[in-house]
Amino acid sequence: MNTPLNPLDLSGRHFLVTGASSGIGRSTAILLHRLGARLSIVDLDEAGLSAVQAELRGGGQVEPHRTDLSDIPAIEPLVGRCVAANGPLHGVVHCAGIQAIVPVRTLQVEGWRKIFAVNTEAALMLGKTMSSRKVYAGEHGSIVFISSVMGMAGSIGAIAYSMSKAALDGMARSLSLELAPRGIRVNCIAPGFVQTPLLERTGKLWDEGQRKAVEDLHPLGFGKPEDIANAVAFLAADTGRWITGSVMVVDGGYLAR
């Protein structure tokens, strides 16, 4: 009797995951590793990266790389180091991001440019590096950017964040057309509010009534990092073979209201 095919099997494939020290990035790294992938994990939090690497010992190779992704010119050398350590890339998952609640009257140029650099420009540079023959493994190519429902729906104080995510969605659509002839798919995932350390820090500014009001915007309640990681795995693996240029909404019903 033949063993059933697992279309989510990532054995032998190498993925670069940014924002891997916590939240969605950490859950994504753990899941892709469990599915057999080799990983290059990237974050500014060196201690967090070490903790993830220690947790994933015993499986495929996991290489940590501490990097400030707001330094756009440094991304191409970073990818070169990842390839040198772990082989050519089959995919990239950009989970790193900056979220800030800042009313427009106090929004400063340097603030929104930092948000845009990490959330959008870093994603573009990662996609650009995947177009290189020296970087791309040549098959099973998949790029997944973590966007947000805030790229589609407005929210007071989220102007810079919404701008960066809306731009990310548009950029990914055009990038998907350029990279399709190379066999590289490009997609975004737009989460609603997910229970990450970032949400918990934001939640400290809310009273119980405010927290409940935000959660009630999601018919299925707040999401968990694993919910987004599952969607990433679907797009990264052969289950997403015929999907590109899309924004997959994973929001517990937030946009349905």
Rank of each mutant, 00 (worst) to 15 (best):
L35C: 04
I115G: 07
A96W: 08
L78K: 04
L44N: 11
G19M: 00
A37Y: 02
A84K: 12
T106V: 08
L35I: 01
L89G: 10
L49N: 09
R26Y: 07
I72S: 03
V118S: 10
F116N: 06
V102F: 09
K114L: 15
V93P: 05
A37S: 14
R113E: 14
G58E: 03
Q61M: 04
T67N: 09
R113M: 08
R105I: 10
A85K: 12
V93H: 09
I72P: 00
N86M: 08
D68T: 11
V109N: 03
P103D: 01
G59K: 12
D45P: 09
A84M: 06
T106M: 07
V104E: 14
L32D: 14
N86L: 12
I115L: 10
R105Q: 15
G111A: 14
G19C: 01
L39N: 00
P88K: 15
L39F: 02
A47T: 15
V118G: 11
V79W: 06
G111L: 08
G25S: 01
A37W: 02
A20V: 05
A20D: 01
L89V: 11
S50Y: 00
S40F: 00
S40P: 02
L78N: 06
P77L: 09
R81V: 01
R26Q: 14
L39Y: 02
A85V: 04
V109S: 10
G36M: 06
S27E: 13
L56T: 01
V109R: 13
G111M: 13
D43C: 09
R113I: 01
S50C: 07
G48Y: 00
L69M: 03
Q99D: 02
G19D: 03
I115F: 11
G36L: 10
V17S: 05
R113T: 13
G59E: 06
P64N: 03
V118Y: 12
H65R: 13
L56C: 03
V83Q: 03
F116V: 11
R34T: 12
V83H: 05
Q99T: 05
S21Q: 07
V102A: 12
I72L: 07
V92T: 06
A96K: 05
R26V: 01
I24N: 07
T106G: 13
N86Q: 12
R34A: 15
D68C: 09
E55P: 09
A84F: 02
G25L: 00
W112H: 10
D71Y: 08
L69W: 04
V83E: 04
G23I: 04
G97E: 05
I30H: 13
G111N: 13
G48Q: 00
H33E: 05
A117T: 02
G59T: 11
S21C: 07
E63W: 03
D68L: 08
E46N: 12
A85R: 14
E46F: 01
G19S: 02
R66S: 13
I115W: 09
L78Y: 05
A54G: 08
G25R: 01
V118C: 12
V42K: 06
S70F: 06
V93R: 04
E46V: 09
G87V: 01
S50M: 07
V42S: 01
G87N: 04
D68K: 07
L49Y: 03
K114A: 15
C82A: 15
R113H: 09
V109I: 09
S21W: 05
P64V: 02
A100I: 05
Q61G: 02
I30C: 12
V93I: 15
D71H: 12
Q99Y: 12
A74D: 10
G58A: 10
P88S: 11
H65S: 11
Q108L: 10
